[in-house]
Design a protein around this nucleic acid. Structure first.
Lengths: 221, 221
DNA sequence: TAAATAGTGTCTCTCAGACACTATGTC
DNA sequence: GACATAGTGTCTGAGAGACACTATTTA
C-alpha cells in the first residue's frame, strides 16, 4: 500500500497476522416454543477440545481473495448448514494474546437467522443457548455476544422486525412479543401499535379460530 | 485458533493478508480562523507518488504484536507528529482488490484532534482539507472519511463536545458553533442551550471586553 | 441612549405512556 | 350473556422549536 516507516523501508514484508471471522448468530424462538421468549445465540463445540462445556462462536480463517462476509457465509455453511444470511461487522478483536496459538485478529460479526432455519442444528456439536446463560465461551467470545446483542437491540428500536425473524403474516402482538424478546424488556401495548402499524402493510385478513376478537394480519412493508 | 476446514486441515498455514490501519483525523477550526466553521480532515501526500493531488489518509501496516490503536498512534506520530489521540474503529475494508499491490485489509479509524495541535502540520506533505472538498482520495479513503463524519456526528448529538475540540473555558455560543460545524447545519439557539447547559459546569466567570452582555463561561463536566 | 449580544418565559406541537373504554370474536 | 382478546379515544407530562421579551454590557 506504499506505507513506509521512518527509514523508508516498505512494510509489506513484515510478518502478517492471521485474520479470522467469528459470527454471533442470534435468533428468537417462536411463541409456542417457549412462553418466555428471549434471544438465543448459536454455539459450536470448540474444535479439537473434548473437555465438557467448551463452546465457541462459529468462525473461520479468511481465505486468500475472500471478503469477510463470504468467510462468514462459509463458516456457517460448513459448520451449521446455513445459507444466505447477512452478517454485519461489529468490531476487530486485536489483543495479540487473545489466542495462545498465534497472532490472530478476529473480525466479530452479527448475523440473524430465523428460528425455523436453526431448529435442526441442535446436535452434540452445535447448540442454541439463551444469551443470559452464556458465560465462559472460548477466547473473547463472551464480548462478541455482548456486542452483537447491543447492535441487534439498536436495529430493533427503529423498525418492525428489520431482520425478518417473524414468519409472515403476523399479528401486532406477535411482533410486540418478538421486539420484547430482542430488547429484553416489556413494551407498552398502545405506543407499540401506534409506532409500528404505519410501517406495516395489512393483508386484510384476520386470525381465525381464536378466542377473543381476531387480530388483523400484517406483512413487512 | 483451531478452526478447521471440512477436510480437517488446520488453516493457519493459509496465506495471510496484510493488515493496515487508516485514520481519518477530523477537526474544526476555531471561530476566528474562519467565519464558516466546518469539519476538516487531515490528509498526507500519497507515499511514493509524485503526481499532483495524490492524497490519502495517514495509515500504516500493523506490526507484529501490536494492537490496532497503537498502529494508529504510530502512524500519526511518525507522519504528523501527533501524540495521545484516541482512535476508534469504524469498519474493515476488505475488497481483495482495493490495493493493486497486494492483499491488504484496512481497519478504518476515526480520530479527533483539536485544531491547535494540527496547525503546524500544514506542510507540502500534510494538509487539512474541508470535508466538502475531499474527493478522489487514494484507495477507498473517500468512504472512510464518510464513515468517520457519520460517526462523529452521532457522538455530537448527545453530549457537549465529547471529544474536547473546544478550549476551556468556552461560551455556550462557542459550543453551539462547534456543534453546528460538526453536524453540518444550524441549530436552534434556545433548545441548544436548554439541552446543553445542564451537562456543563459554569466557572462563575464571564467574558470581558466584548460588545453586548458578556457571556458566561463553562467547562465540560 | 443606542446598539449588540446573552439569556429566558411561554406558547404550541408532537410524541410516549397511562388508562379506560369500545369492538368483536368464542364458549 | 360471560369471557377473552383486539384495538382506540383521550388525558397528561416531557421535550423541541418558534418567538418575543428581558438583561447587561460597550460605544
Amino acid at each position: 500500500m506504499g506505507y513506509q516507516d521512518s527509514a523508508g523501508k516498505a512494510l509489506t514484508d513484515y510478518p502478517r497476522p492471521s485474520v479470522a471471522v467469528d459470527v454471533a448468530v442470534l435468533t428468537v424462538p417462536p411463541e409456542q416454543h417457549s412462553p418466555e421468549q428471549e434471544l438465543f445465540v448459536l454455539l459450536v463445540r470448540r474444535a479439537g477440545k473434548h473437555q465438557h462445556d467448551a463452546w465457541q462462536l462459529p468462525g473461520t480463517f479468511l481465505h486468500p481473495g475472500e471478503i469477510l462476509a463470504d468467510a462468514c457465509h462459509r463458516a456457517l455453511r460448513e459448520k451449521v448448514g446455513i445459507e444466505g444470511s447477512e452478517p454485519v461487522q461489529l468490531h476487530v478483536l486485536d489483543d495479540p494474546h487473545r489466542d495462545d496459538r498465534g497472532w490472530v485478529l478476529s473480525v466479530a460479526h452479527l448475523d440473524v437467522v430465523a428460528w425455523r432455519r436453526l431448529e435442526r442444528v441442535d446436535t452434540t456439536e452445535v447448540r442454541l443457548a439463551p444469551i443470559a446463560e452464556v458465560r465462559g465461551l472460548a477466547f473473547d467470545h463472551d464480548r462478541i455476544v455482548a456486542l452483537a446483542v447491543e447492535r441487534l437491540r439498536a436495529e430493533y428500536q427503529e423498525t418492525p422486525d428489520p431482520r425478518g425473524l417473524l414468519e409472515e403474516p403476523f399479528t401486532l402482538l406477535d411482533l410486540q412479543r418478538l421486539h420484547e424478546a430482542v430488547v429484553g424488556h416489556e413494551l407498552p401495548k398502545d405506543s407499540f401499535r401506534r409506532g409500528m402499524e404505519p410501517r406495516l402493510r395489512a393483508t386484510g385478513e384476520t386470525q381465525a379460530g381464536v378466542v377473543g376478537k381476531p387480530a388483523r394480519l400484517f406483512v413487512r412493508e
